[in-house]
Each structure stands twice: as structure tokens, then as C-alpha cells.
Simulated scan of single mutants.
Amino acid sequence: MEIIFFILIVVYAVFILQLFFGFNKIKDQSISKEYTPKTNFTIVVPFRNEAKNLSKLLASLSNLNYPKNFIEIIMIDDDSKDNSSAVFIKWRMKNDEIDTTLLENLRLSNSPKKDAISRAMPIAKNPWIITTDADCEVNPNWLSSIDGFIQKNSFEMIAAPVIYKTKNNWFHHFQQFEMLSLQATTIGSFGINQPFMCNGANFAYTKKMFLELDGFEDNNKIASGDDVFLLQKAIAKCSDKVGFLKAQNAIVITKPENNLFKLLMHRIRWASKTSNYNSFYPKFLASSVFFANAFIAFGLIALFFGKLDWKLFLILFLIKYSIDYLLILKANSFFNTNKIAIPFASAILYPFFATTVGVFSLFGKFTWKGRRF
């Protein structure tokens, strides 16, 4: 048994170290002094019951340092039960210099968000589509950063960074550690030419590529994955057309969850699509992460009952902890979040959390936005 645990942690360490070095291969981008805006964007925002959050997103869109006549915004109301649409309509009346459209979603599949994006696509006027979420805020230079990256490269799909805006409490910091590790994994995977993950809160692609990939065809039975499955289809067909924009000005800020049940449902929703990945690498990586965390969780229980050598467990725990912390520090050097302390509590609790999420994503169901999937 000890040999199996050792092999699990060593394999896990190899994966994480690969991502750590891959992170460095993606160069930071900045807007040049000679920059001139050229690209027209359609921003697509599906929403459901987001009246409390929409105002911040819309205010940040109002403050974009980008020509308003280069911007189109399509909002898709996914059967909201609150006054989300009224919030948007009120904002639109004060910002009539921006081309805006409000649509009602049409449910055609098991994925409301994919339906919403597909609903917007036929009427989108601009060549580039950017998706974000209703609980996000964007940087004033968000579109300028993406446009500058487009002008420098021949990409037709661009993944970009997302981070939490946290309050000063442990539960939010716990989620921030996790988000930093996910973003480091995303960036690192691009650095080693094995990209498989992105975040739909900050995801851009040409309308042309979306249509060439047949959109969400073949994966619309899966509730989530409007971002990763489209990315993986693009990688399989034309990997040279896909890139990651590592730029401070391109960071989109979103909100962490405020209670454990919602956090679990959110993560189970994310993890539920893993078994449907097409390529070997992400499945092997996901399995390695799951079993490494499961070992720590069950190892702590075994220690309590005296069924495991504490010296061996401590060595393996410290190996995992050290490389996890290195990856988080690497991500934090880019995102500049709150000062990172040594998260011993998170390191002990997270394996139980991750194992629970992994098990339920395979065998359980989840509730999201008042719906059960």
C-alpha cells in the first residue's frame, strides 16, 4: 500500500512541476504605445437571476477604454425570476451609444448556457465573440488587451485569465487558492502545448471558428463545458489558431461563493465534464489530482486510527504541499492577489473537498441556478 501511495504522489508531482515550468513559457503581454484599436467585438452574456450582480458588470462595460462603435453587447435572459432584465434595460437607456440586444433563451438541450450562446450567434454582427458572466467585472483595458493580442498573432480563439474578488475571510481565501491553482494549470497547460481548460467568463473566438467547429454540437447533453469543449474541439482541429492571453489588463474578476453547498454544487458542475474530455492528457491529469488528494484525505483518517506510518505520510504530504504551494505562488506572482500565507488549513481540508467533488461528479447530481442536472 505504501508503494502505491508513493507512486501516486510522484506522478502527481511530475504533472504539477510540468505545469509550473509551462507557466513561465507563456509570456506576459502588454499594450504597446503605438496601439490603435481595430477589432469589432460582440460581448455575449447569458444570465439567470443576476439582478444583484449585473449592475457591476454593466458599469465596468461602460468604463471600457475602447471605441463604443466597435462594441456590441448581447444579453440572454435564461428565464430569470427576478428583475435582471429590468436592470439591463435601465442601463441600456443610459448607454445608448453602445449597440445592445436583449434576448430570451430558448432551451433546446440539457445546457442552458450553451443554448444561450447559440441563440446569440446568428444575430452577432461582429467577427469576434467574447463570453463573460453576469457576476463579473472587466478591466477598462480588457478589450484593448485582447485586440492588441489579436493584432500581434493569427489566433482565432483566445483564452484569458479570471480571478476572484474576495473578502477578508478564510472561506473566500480557500476558494482563491483553488482558483489560483486552476489558472496556473490553465496557463501551464498552454505552455507545454497541452491546453485543455479555459474559463467562459473570459473567452474569445471568431464567429467563423465557432461555426466551423459546429458550435456545441456533440456535447450539448452535458450541462456545463461551453468553454472547455469548444476549446478542445479547436485544439483537435487547428491548435495553431488557439492561444492564451497572459496580460494584467485582460484579467476578469468574478465572485466566489458564500456558502459551502453552493461551492460544492459549482465544483461538481465543473468536474462533471471531465469524463467527457476527448484527449488522454487531461483525463490522466484529472485522475492524478483526484487520487493524490484522495490519498491525503484517507491517509489522515488512517493516521487517526493508527493504520499508516506517520513518517511516510508526512514525507508524501510535504512533497504534495510544497509543489502545490509553488504553483500557487507562481500564479499569484501574475495575479497579484492578497498576500499569500502558508495555507496549512486549506492544504489539510482541500483533499477532503476535492475527493468529495470528484466522487459526486461521477455518480451524483447537482443543482445550479435553481435547476437540477
Results as ranks from 00 to 15, higher is better:
M121Q: 15
M121C: 10
M121W: 12
M121T: 03
M121Y: 15
P122M: 13
P122T: 13
I123N: 12
I123T: 11
I123V: 12
A124R: 15
A124K: 13
A124L: 02
A124E: 11
K125Y: 14
K125S: 15
K125V: 12
N126E: 14
N126D: 09
N126S: 09
N126R: 11
W128A: 09
I129P: 07
I129R: 01
I130C: 02
I130R: 00
T131M: 10
T131Y: 05
T132I: 10
T132A: 10
T132V: 03
T132K: 01
T132P: 08
T132L: 06
D133A: 05
D133H: 08
D133P: 08
A134Q: 11
A134V: 02
A134T: 03
D135M: 04
D135K: 08
D135C: 02
D135I: 00
D135W: 07
C136E: 14
C136I: 11
C136P: 06
E137R: 06
E137N: 05
E137S: 06
E137M: 08
E137K: 01
V138P: 02
V138R: 03
N139I: 02
N139E: 05
N139R: 01
P140I: 07
P140W: 09
P140D: 14
P140R: 07
N141F: 07
N141H: 07
W142V: 02
L143C: 01
L143Y: 00
L143D: 04
L143M: 07
L143H: 00
S144I: 00
S144H: 05
S144Y: 01
S144W: 09
S145M: 00
S145N: 14
S145Y: 04
S145I: 02
S145C: 09
I146S: 09
I146D: 13
I146N: 13
I146Y: 08
D147G: 00
G148A: 00
G148D: 00
F149C: 08
F149G: 05
F149A: 06
F149N: 07
F149W: 07
I150D: 04
Q151L: 10
Q151V: 02
Q151D: 14
Q151I: 06
Q151S: 09
Q151M: 08
K152M: 14
N153H: 11
S154G: 09
S154R: 10
F155L: 08
F155W: 11
F155S: 06
F155R: 04
F155V: 02
E156G: 08
E156T: 06
E156K: 12
E156F: 08
M157I: 04
M157S: 03
M157H: 09
M157R: 03
I158L: 14
I158T: 07
I158G: 05
I158H: 15
A159I: 06
A159S: 11
A159C: 09
A159W: 08
A160Q: 13
A160W: 05
P161E: 12
V162N: 12
V162Q: 14
V162W: 01
